[in-house]
Design a protein around this nucleic acid. Structure first.
Lengths: 343, 343
DNA sequence: GGGTTTTACTAAACCGCTCTAGTGAAAAGG
DNA sequence: CCTTTTCACTAGAGCGGTTTAGTAAAACCC
């Protein structure tokens, strides 16, 4: 048995195709009685709209794209990504919009996909992640005039709306907390300097250090990998006057750093405090559990989805959305530094 | 400027629509010279097929579906899932087939999505994960007669083709290894008994224990969460004659278990050996690094993609695919048990 | 050279749905 | 009671491709 079309419904209900279309789309042009009859027949026949047929008439594709230029490893490794995906998905599927995911090699390939999917009318809009300094993708998306929402900000995303958290504020409060505990030598195992948020965090740390007259406040950039996170930690802990507190830009690096401390015989938190700028399962399940700046990544995905859907409905209507500043969850990995401990 | 259609190309090349279609699809019916001219014009005008228009003619949707009934948390937490996704994606995008991801509440909702997407011609096939005992999804997919590939096996997936690894074999070799080290009391923090592979692993452990005359070989089922993994570990380590080796069904639980051991003052590997049935970044970055059964999850995704594409091209042609049996990577978390140590 | 086959191409139907223009009848208005 | 407006509905074009049936010319064959 082949699937029913509106023609089948029309025949069975004794009306025209158009009447059926009106009824099914809640448009004026049919009487309440007829409308109800058509709907009943449609549901009896278990009718479902044919997506492609709808999309052909110039309508929506009812799908949005997420193109990621990252090595496959990271995509599995970082809880952040999976949660964001799940949150996006939840926000979109409530309006039955599909998510087209594509993993590519590099930014050039990513841009190529933007062009292709836009011209093929494959998606109605894009979610852009990993905002970079002087991001090449922004002008392309502006030129394509396709709805898009950038995750990250508050600047550097041109005319595209963005959903962002205040990294600077978070870093400042984090350093305040560590300084209050008595830490004067704080190091920061940062992410990739190409990323906007990494730069902002590094700048914030420097500013905080100046304001608080901290002895030392180095930022060491990495590529976000556990390997570089580990080696940066090793280098920092090998220095003659080692820092008493380490801030890691990601949960993966924080866990890797924790392992390095254990391997080097540096007790956490007695000899070293560890903080992660990203919270997740990872920071909770290791021992000692890691103090972390947390945000609800699943909810973040939902906010991005909402912003994108709004941008698709009414291009130009969406303004930047500032999400809640990440809040500190104190666990077992932070304490006053040994030399200044009271008890 | 609006996007070009084949009509535009036809007009510009001085031929009919049909000739253009033939040329663009490598079909007979046009002379080599004309074909070349048409292709040149098409590329000059930067023509791209309109997906929906193609799909309308009864053709492929050029997309496959992955519907997952899991809490959002797990999806972010387990590296396995992200890697599988990336692998699937890579395998599919090589043939420019999109992946439609959907996260739902439960199996009933999942089945609903199968029905809807099939009747809407939204996808050409499905990837089915988390195969369960007496899986309700299998008969539905069989009835819908839609191409689908099941991840998991070797049994319980009806007439659907499956891609599977030999869990039993892996468990047997793992227990052999631990026994060879001298362990006689081995416990297994298992996953959810509803899952097929969990049952198979539990059975394999029991068989191995009998064959090797092990004193003890308990399997404790959990829901795969870090919380239950931790509490199962706590219970096992609190028993009067505690096991000397623990096998965890997932990397997340293994890491959680490791933390519990640290918290309880049980040294790993001196006082307890820990093995994970799943390998990932997680098992590598903690300290001590965890001995784990590894498989290439990214490649697994690729194999699933290949099988599904084949099933779509030629339904019924795909047989079950057995993937490489997971191999043991020995790290720092396993050693001969204390009481029997030589040195 | 007349008939058959092949080749290169065109015209038009078709996929399922939306939407505009058009139609006939009922309701409203003077 | 006739005109105008509104209402409920239909016919049919159009979206951008694919594909079938048809056609004229060229190639082939004894």
């Amino acid at each position: 048995m082949t699937r029913p079309t509106i023609d089948d419904i029309a025949r069975r209900a004794g009306v025209s195709k158009s009447a059926v279309s009106f009824a099914l789309n809640n448009r004026p042009g049919v009487s309440p009685a007829t409308r109800e009859r058509i709907l009943r027949v449609a549901s009896e026949m278990n009718w479902r709209p044919h997506k492609a047929a709808r999309a052909l008439g110039g309508a929506r594709a009812d799908a949005v794209g997420l193109v990621v230029a990252r090595p496959a490893q990271t995509i599995g490794a970082e809880p952040f990504f999976g949660l964001l995906l799940a949150g996006l998905q939840a926000g979109l599927s409530a309006r039955s919009v599909a998510l087209h995911l594509m993993v590519v090699e590099d930014t050039s390939a990513e841009i190529e996909v933007y062009r292709r999917w836009t011209s093929e009318r494959h998606v109605d809009g894009f979610v852009v992640v990993d905002l970079q300094h002087r991001d090449r993708r922004v002008p392309v998306l502006e030129e394509l005039a396709v709805p898009a929402v950038v995750l990250g900000g508050p600047t550097g995303h041109g005319s595209l709306p963005s959903v962002w958290a205040d990294d600077r504020e978070a870093m400042l409060s984090l350093v305040d907390y560590l300084a209050a505990l008595g830490h004067r030598r704080i190091a920061h195992v940062a992410g990739d300097e190409a990323f906007h948020h990494t730069r902002r965090r590094m700048r914030a740390l420097k500013d905080a250090a100046r304001r608080l007259h901290l002895a030392d406040a180095v930022s060491v950039p990495t590529d976000f990998s556990d390997a570089q996170g580990a080696s940066a930690t090793r280098a920092l802990l090998s220095a003659p006057r080692r820092p008493t507190a380490l801030i890691f830009d990601s949960d993966v690096m924080a866990v890797a750093g924790l392992a390095v401390a254990a391997e080097m015989g540096v007790a956490v938190p007695a000899g070293l405090s560890v903080v992660s700028f990203e919270d997740s399962l990872l920071t909770r399940i290791v021992h000692p559990a890691i103090t972390a700046l947390g945000r609800d990544t699943f909810a973040l995905g939902g906010q991005v989805a909402a912003a994108l859907l709004a941008a698709i409905d009414e291009p130009g209507s969406v303004r930047d959305v500032k999400t809640a500043t990440p809040r500190l969850t104190v666990r077992e990995s932070t304490r006053a530094p040994y030399t200044e401990r009271q008890g």
